[in-house]
Computed example of a mutant assay.
Amino acid sequence: MKITGGCHCGAVSYVVATDNLPPSYACHCLDCQTTSGSAFGLHALLPEDALQITGELSDYRYEGAHPASHHRLCAHCHTRIYNTTSAAPGMLVLRAGTLHNSAAIKPIAHIWVKRRQPWLQLAEGTPSWPESPTPEAFAQALQARPV
């Protein structure tokens, strides 16, 4: 299966070098709510070399109270495509909503649920943490995803 995605205007497209949809998680922190303009950010964690991008990207860096991150966006429509973060060296955080097959994404974990919108109900049994989990706990949740 070829996994592809891109920005809103079509100027940026990408191919994910993997056979399956990547494991995705929802982050409910205030930064993700603000930058997504929604109740949470939906992210897929990938190795840095797993994304082949075509098109012009712009970038910005965020070094606030949370781990530092470097965001890449379409240079034309400013759709956020992915970011890297000091919290996950060697990995990139793909915006799962930019996948062409995003309807098939099902979050396998939720982080920063202490900031979750009160009207949002999480699926029972899905791993969740009030803030960021330990790297070990998060890796375990990502590896336990259903096939």
Rank of each mutant, 00 (worst) to 15 (best):
V15A: 10
H110G: 05
T84R: 07
W112D: 07
H8I: 15
A96H: 03
L122G: 11
V113S: 11
N20S: 13
S58N: 13
A103N: 06
L94Y: 02
P146Y: 02
C29A: 08
A141Y: 10
A104E: 12
Q121N: 08
D59N: 09
P22K: 04
Y82M: 00
S128R: 11
G90W: 07
H8D: 14
A26L: 09
P133N: 11
F40M: 15
T84C: 03
P133Q: 11
A65T: 05
D31G: 02
N83Q: 02
E131N: 05
V93Y: 00
E56F: 00
R95D: 02
E48R: 04
G37N: 12
G55N: 09
F138I: 08
L42G: 09
L30T: 13
A68I: 00
A96D: 03
P146F: 02
P67L: 02
P133V: 09
I111A: 10
R80P: 08
E63T: 05
N83H: 11
L45F: 07
W129H: 05
S132L: 09
C74D: 06
T98F: 02
L46D: 07
S102G: 01
E131F: 08
V113T: 15
G97P: 03
G5Y: 13
C7Y: 10
H110Q: 14
S13A: 15
Q117C: 15
M91L: 09
S13K: 04
L142K: 05
L21C: 11
